[in-house]
């Protein structure tokens, strides 16, 4: 069989839970605040807290460009480097072209082990879609991208909250950013803080720094 076909088939089957969540409705609406109920100033403050999360290595390191090379920030260090062992996620973003991410990063709802054991998640391990580029981007760039439906999976502010809740229901990557395994740094706040900040930012009209 053709390699790219295999890669595509694998990618399709593994990414099904992720694409499904685009259509999952309602889970985030409980968190949503009424549009306009949060001031622009408060919305910008919420964004600053969101920015600290999405630019944190724990969250940004797999949001890489089309080159598909994940980034490592080893436990106890702040400097980033490329993932070891020649790893790249390929166009499939799950490593199907070479070695699947799931060879080492298990699909599991069990808690993460202490560093440097590879973290696991309830969703098959993968890079974020290539248009969701965070690593190496400024906060302003990520902000504009997050509210751009062409580059955020077609989501409005409420659908972004759905995304967070759906991912959490699968023990996915987002809540695990705050539970990466002993010895690893975490983004500021908690997952619930992050959901609240996203709700406030959305209700304030998704303001972004210029």
């Amino acid at each position: 069989m053709d390699r790219t076909l295999i890669a595509a088939a694998l990618a399709a089957s593994i990414m099904a839970p992720l694409t499904a969540m685009v259509y999952a409705e309602g889970e985030g609406s409980r968190d949503a605040l009424a549009p306009g109920s949060v001031s622009r100033v408060a919305g910008m403050e919420a964004w600053k807290r969101i920015e600290a999360v999405v630019t944190h290595p724990r969250c940004a390191n797999c949001h890489v460009n089309a080159g598909g090379i994940p980034i490592w920030t080893p436990a106890g260090e702040t400097k980033s480097r490329v993932h070891g062992m020649n790893i790249h996620g390929g166009a499939s973003r799950i490593g199907a072209e070479a070695i699947p991410c799931s060879t080492c990063h298990m699909t599991s709802t069990l808690p993460n082990d202490p560093a440097p054991a590879p973290p696991r998640a309830g969703i098959p391990w993968q890079l974020a879609p290539v248009e969701f580029l965070w690593y190496g981007q400024s906060g302003a760039e990520i902000c504009k991208q997050l509210r751009d439906r062409a580059r955020n999976g077609g989501r409005d502010a409420v659908a972004l909250l759905d995304h967070l809740r759906h991912d959490a229901s699968l023990s996915g990557f987002i809540p695990r950013g705050w539970e990466p395994g002993e010895g690893r740094s975490t983004p500021p706040g908690t997952f619930e803080d992050h959901v609240r900040d996203m709700a406030e930012w959305g209700a304030a009209g998704q303001p972004c720094p210029e």
Binding site: T103, S108, L110, A117
Partner: peptide, 11 residues
């Protein structure tokens, strides 16, 4: 192929 030191019995 999977690293069996990482795969847990429950999984």
């Amino acid at each position: 192929a999977v690293r069996s030191c990482q795969a847990r019995m429950a999984d």
